[in-house]
Amino acid sequence: MPSTPPRQSTCSITLVTPPLSATSAPAFGKVFAEVLAAAPIASARVRFAPGAEGVAKAIIAPLLKASAAADCALILDGDPRRAARLGADGAHVDGAGEALDEALDSLKPERIVGVGGLKMRDDAMTAGEKGADYVMFGEPRGAAPPMALELLLERVGWWADIFETPCVAYAESIEAARRLARAGADFVAVDDAVWGAPSPAEAARALHAAVARAAAEAP
């Protein structure tokens, strides 16, 4: 994945991991590899459980191997220096302030810098103007108060009509992902809709089919 992804005519998939710890990561790594083998996944955002930062290298080692084999960019939450040190493809930070400035200074142009936690339209515009590689609307459950789907659809449509910086939209379900892709999202970000399914690999295939169908439905 290039350090500055081009705007694309179809929507791609990014997966958001559950918060991982040293104990949960080995089993998750196996499921992660199965999902990446089941459907095209453009990128994956890795979240860490509280207190797990010190074992980040062990947590992401199997994920790096699987993502490299599947041509999937691996993006780490939080400290951008950790992303560079561990060989990840980039970092995801919250807000358009100092954290974003630090990430841009330390990672660009070699690595991806994405930003979420953008509550206001002005925040997203500022992030885009500063040079973020993508802006994310909506957040995984527990990370922030959820954004209603109708508001999220409106925000994605507004961004897609005006701005060139790619946008990622968080989807709580496969149907929400289809609607967000149809609204103009460059990427849909999914977590529990895949990881919480009886078969995450089957869910990933269904997600890919739904997003591909949205391209045909787009006005």
Results as ranks from 00 to 15, higher is better:
residue 159 W to S: 01
residue 140 P to T: 07
residue 166 P to L: 05
residue 152 L to Y: 01
residue 165 T to A: 13
residue 144 A to S: 13
residue 132 A to F: 09
residue 154 E to K: 10
residue 146 P to A: 13
residue 130 K to D: 10
residue 145 P to A: 07
residue 165 T to Q: 05
residue 134 Y to K: 04
residue 149 L to N: 01
residue 156 V to M: 10
residue 140 P to E: 06
residue 139 E to V: 05
residue 163 F to C: 15
residue 139 E to W: 09
residue 145 P to L: 13
residue 127 A to R: 05
residue 124 A to R: 00
residue 131 G to D: 08
residue 127 A to M: 01
residue 149 L to Q: 12
residue 155 R to C: 01
residue 165 T to D: 06
residue 163 F to M: 13
residue 134 Y to W: 15
residue 156 V to P: 03
residue 138 G to C: 00
residue 130 K to V: 11
residue 152 L to C: 09
residue 143 A to N: 06
residue 141 R to C: 02
residue 124 A to F: 02
residue 150 E to G: 09
residue 126 T to E: 14
residue 132 A to L: 02
residue 147 M to S: 10
residue 141 R to K: 07
residue 164 E to A: 15
residue 164 E to S: 15
residue 150 E to Y: 11
residue 165 T to P: 03
residue 151 L to M: 03
residue 128 G to P: 04
residue 160 A to P: 00
residue 139 E to T: 14
residue 159 W to Y: 07
residue 166 P to F: 09
residue 160 A to F: 02
residue 166 P to D: 04
residue 152 L to K: 08
residue 125 M to C: 13
residue 158 W to A: 01
residue 159 W to A: 09
residue 161 D to S: 14
residue 142 G to K: 00
residue 142 G to Q: 01
residue 149 L to R: 09
residue 125 M to D: 14
residue 148 A to I: 13
residue 139 E to Q: 11
residue 125 M to Q: 14
residue 132 A to P: 02
residue 135 V to Q: 03
residue 162 I to A: 09
residue 152 L to D: 06
residue 153 L to Q: 11
residue 124 A to I: 00
residue 131 G to T: 12
residue 165 T to E: 04
residue 164 E to W: 14
residue 155 R to F: 00
residue 143 A to V: 10
residue 147 M to P: 00
residue 125 M to S: 10
residue 140 P to C: 06
residue 136 M to S: 07
residue 127 A to S: 10
residue 134 Y to I: 07
residue 160 A to G: 02
residue 129 E to S: 15
residue 156 V to F: 10
residue 138 G to P: 00
residue 166 P to V: 09
residue 139 E to A: 14
residue 160 A to K: 04
residue 159 W to V: 03
residue 124 A to T: 00
residue 135 V to G: 02
residue 154 E to S: 11
residue 144 A to D: 10
residue 160 A to S: 08
residue 130 K to F: 08
residue 146 P to V: 12
residue 136 M to F: 08
residue 151 L to H: 00
residue 127 A to Y: 08
residue 157 G to A: 08
residue 124 A to H: 00
residue 162 I to L: 13
residue 161 D to E: 14
residue 165 T to V: 15
residue 163 F to H: 15
residue 145 P to W: 03
residue 128 G to C: 13
residue 134 Y to D: 08
residue 133 D to C: 15
residue 139 E to D: 12
residue 151 L to G: 06
residue 140 P to V: 09
residue 126 T to N: 09
residue 147 M to A: 08
residue 148 A to P: 12
residue 139 E to C: 12
residue 150 E to L: 15
residue 144 A to Y: 05
residue 134 Y to R: 10
residue 137 F to W: 10
residue 152 L to R: 11
residue 158 W to L: 03
residue 156 V to Q: 02
